[in-house]
Simulated scan of single mutants.
Amino acid sequence: GIILLGFRLNLEKLAAAGVKTILVAAIGVTGTIILTYWLSRKFGAEDELAILSACGCGICGAAAVMGVSPQIETDNEERKRENEVLAVAVVCVMGTVFTLVEIGIKPLLGLTDPQFGIVAGGSLHEIAHAVAAGGAFGEASLDNALIMKLSRVLLLAPVALIVGYWYQHRLIVESEEEHTKEPKKLPIPWFLGGFILTSVLGTFLPFSPAFLGALVQAAYIFLGMAMAALGVSVNFKVIFKRGGAVFGAAVISSTCLLAFMIIMSKIFF
């Protein structure tokens, strides 16, 4: 679905957005990860769950959780899998709630449709959430939501690398045996390659508007299926049992991120 959605993004518009989009994304991602992690630990969440939830809220939801998780060394794989599921559940629920909230409060924010697209792409967790919110207010809003959201997704690889180095360094300090461990493979969101390719094709090849429209509609169908699948993965019993700390942290950090993106959209876009 994300690959097909590339036909919707015009790279000439992306170039026009400039470096400011990447800079705003980098500040938002960094601040959200640090704040979510710090609050989660303050509220009593275990370290591994806190960093997974923080990356999910800061970057791109479930994809970020599953991308960062292999970089974390642990002796309890079963507990790690449980933390993955819990982190995915938290970010998916938060992203869905904030999608509805942002669409609802848009008339109160005094934002133009393109500015709202920046807010949606910069504050919502899943790509599907950003598409849903941005697409609710027209093409300009959707284009900006995609540009802003994908600027955050591009930060997945460097963040995973930093997290992996941080955890390996901590383990080396704790035990000399960790010197023999090989570094984990850096996760690469390969779907971004397909998205960029379809963006290039859609921008520079003379496809008919009807054909491009059909491909984009197919993308919406696939992304809708993906959101439904994410909903199936949510286990509220686990959230109520162990997820209170990270859920509370995610509420606060997501609200702060939304406020930050509203301010940034008004100043720079």
Score class of each variant (00 low, 15 high):
Thr255Leu: 11
Gly193Gln: 06
Ala214Arg: 13
Ala136Asn: 06
Arg8Glu: 05
Pro70His: 12
Ala17Glu: 03
Leu23Arg: 08
Gly202Gln: 04
Cys57Thr: 14
Pro158Thr: 01
Ile22Trp: 13
Val200Trp: 14
Ser123Thr: 06
Ala25Gln: 06
Pro209Val: 07
Ile188Lys: 09
Tyr165Gly: 01
Ile262Asn: 08
Ile196Asn: 03
Leu258Phe: 15
Ile22Pro: 03
Val91Ser: 06
Ile263Arg: 12
Ser199Lys: 14
Gly67Leu: 08
Glu139Thr: 14
Thr198Gly: 10
Val232Gly: 07
Gln71Pro: 07
Ala120Gln: 03
Arg8Asp: 04
His169Leu: 11
Glu77Pro: 08
Ala214Lys: 13
Ser123Asn: 02
Cys92Ala: 13
Glu139Arg: 14
Gln217Glu: 03
Lys237Thr: 09
His125Ser: 09
Ile262Val: 15
Tyr165Ser: 02
Ala128Phe: 14
Ser199Glu: 02
Arg81Phe: 15
Lys181Ser: 03
Met227Tyr: 09
Thr99Asp: 00
Gly138Asp: 01
Leu257Lys: 13
Lys80Asp: 02
Gly6Met: 05
Thr21Gln: 09
Pro183Asn: 00
Ile3Val: 15
Gly224Asp: 01
Val251Asn: 05
Leu23Cys: 09
Ala249Glu: 01
Ala157Leu: 05
Arg41His: 03
Ala120His: 01
His129Asn: 07
Ile27Asn: 04
Ala226Glu: 02
Ala62Ser: 09
Leu192Arg: 12
Cys60Lys: 11
Ser69Trp: 13
Leu154Lys: 05
Leu39Ala: 07
Ala63Met: 08
Leu142Asp: 01
Ile59Gln: 04
Ile72Glu: 00
Cys57Gln: 06
Gly248Phe: 04
Glu176Ile: 11
Ala130Asn: 05
Phe269Ala: 08
Ala145Tyr: 07
Ala25Glu: 01
Gln115Lys: 12
Ile2Tyr: 14
Ala228Ser: 10
Phe98Arg: 03
Ser53Trp: 12
Thr180Leu: 10
Thr74Pro: 02
Ala245Cys: 08
Lys266Ile: 11
Glu48Pro: 13
Ile267Arg: 12
Arg81Lys: 15
Lys184Cys: 06
Ser233Glu: 02
Leu215Val: 10
Phe240Arg: 08
Leu205His: 14
Gly67Thr: 10
Lys106Trp: 06
Ile267Tyr: 13
Gln71Ile: 10
Cys256Glu: 01
Ile103Gly: 04
Gly67Asp: 03
Phe260His: 05
Pro187Val: 01
Gly224Thr: 08
Phe269Leu: 11
Met261Phe: 15
Arg242Gly: 11
Ala249Tyr: 15
Val200Asn: 09
Val101Cys: 04
Leu197Lys: 14
Met264Ile: 09
Glu177Met: 10
Leu257Trp: 10
Gln115Met: 13
Gly28Tyr: 02
Phe268Ala: 07
Leu257Asn: 08
Ala160Leu: 00
Gly117Asp: 00
Ala145Ile: 06
Asn83Gly: 14
Glu48Ile: 15
Thr74Tyr: 07
Ile103Asn: 02
Gly56Arg: 07
Ser253Thr: 12
Leu100Cys: 06
His179Glu: 00
Glu73Met: 12
Val159Asn: 00
Thr30Glu: 00
Phe240Asp: 00
Ile221Tyr: 13
Ile3Trp: 09
Thr99Pro: 04
Leu156Val: 01
Ala130Trp: 11
Leu205Trp: 15
Ser40Trp: 00
Cys256Lys: 13
Asp75Met: 05
Lys13Val: 13
Glu84Phe: 15
Gly61Gln: 04
Gly67Ser: 04
